[in-house]
Design a binder for these strands. Sequence first.
DNA 1: GTCACGATGTATCAGTTCGATATATCAAAC
DNA 2: GTTTGATATATCGAACTGATACATCGTGAC
Lengths: 207, 207
Amino acid sequence: MAKRSDVLELAVLGLLHEAPMHGYELRKRLNLTLGALRAFSYGSLYPCLKEMLAEGLVAQQPEVAVPVAKRSRIVYELTAEGKEHFATLLGEGGPSTWDDDGFGVHFAFFGRTDAATRLRILEGRRSRLEERVDGFRSALTRSRERVDGYTLALHQHGLESVEREVRWLSELIDDERRTAPTTPVTPLTPSVRPTARAPRLDNKEHS
Amino acid sequence: MAKRSDVLELAVLGLLHEAPMHGYELRKRLNLTLGALRAFSYGSLYPCLKEMLAEGLVAQQPEVAVPVAKRSRIVYELTAEGKEHFATLLGEGGPSTWDDDGFGVHFAFFGRTDAATRLRILEGRRSRLEERVDGFRSALTRSRERVDGYTLALHQHGLESVEREVRWLSELIDDERRTAPTTPVTPLTPSVRPTARAPRLDNKEHS
DNA sequence: GTCACGATGTATCAGTTCGATATATCAAAC
DNA sequence: GTTTGATATATCGAACTGATACATCGTGAC
């Protein structure tokens, strides 16, 4: 488990919440929504879609509307099982939830969860990163005298990057804590409407 | 090309410069030297060592000294071809030199290159990252109104992380430029001796 | 009008890597 | 004495990537 496809599956289900889509478009939206930080290939997307179809998580939309025989395309839409599975995956906080890929995808769909889940994921991610910080730190003290100056600089930079992400997460957690207690569950926009209500996550760092 | 094994190969050759080693130890040093940021598995290391042995880049050290039949271990040492190949790989600035993995390994062995090569690699890496910054930026402006606040925050954080690394690289480049012109080629320590002469790369960020 | 070319769209495959695991030895604990 | 855990080499299946094949559509050049 903790396979890459689990992450892909979550991402696909999340995107299909917005609108039915076909593979090609999914891939574009995937690589756009998840930033330039994640690239899914067709080699994993299409097989994944087939599996999800077989499992009943998505359904093949019948040729709608347009009478003109357009270019062949297979439009997938979310089923009830799919929505349910999405909620489960997003909320469960499994093992893959806190690693780099998993967290990114979970975070991108935070708008569809409740504050408690968000907090749990954010805190899980943070403690995961804190472990990494410890690893870096002990490596640094251990090797302080044994390695090259450049290697040292590399470790130092790596350490600071992770520390920075920890600070970012801490701000997010504080924001959640400050916002959540009053509003039990964020209503979240049902469809395409942009939402646009970020909970004060202007993580300013420079200027 | 640009296979993962190329990176592994470079790392192995680099480590063997310090001392002959066997597989298990190589893996430990690998994951230590390259920080917690890179994990090589046995599944790639052992096959890689065999290939390198076949290509004559490394040699199997005959059982030395200790008369006691120790636990079976295969100690590899660098050959002349290996050293040559290492220098080539490290200096060539190929396609894989500037991606995340490749750059880390190259950087970790900067102590064994000359200033010109260092500059070339640093600048290559920087422009690679600047491309990524552009990607993030356009994605941000494109999606500013279309995506969830959390997705936005994710992109923003990603963008700032990359920008930060660009600044880091710029400092390193400045340091190289300031140091290099006078001293044409850094002598670099021949063996185990720790070097310890980092060219002022105290990239302080917080306090 | 048509033709070339690039974007759209689905699909698969070879090559490569990872994670888990098997096997075995040794040191120290108990 | 035997159980545990680190050392050490090795392999295998499952999975992913990058490339590619194949087909259709839109559009601009001529």
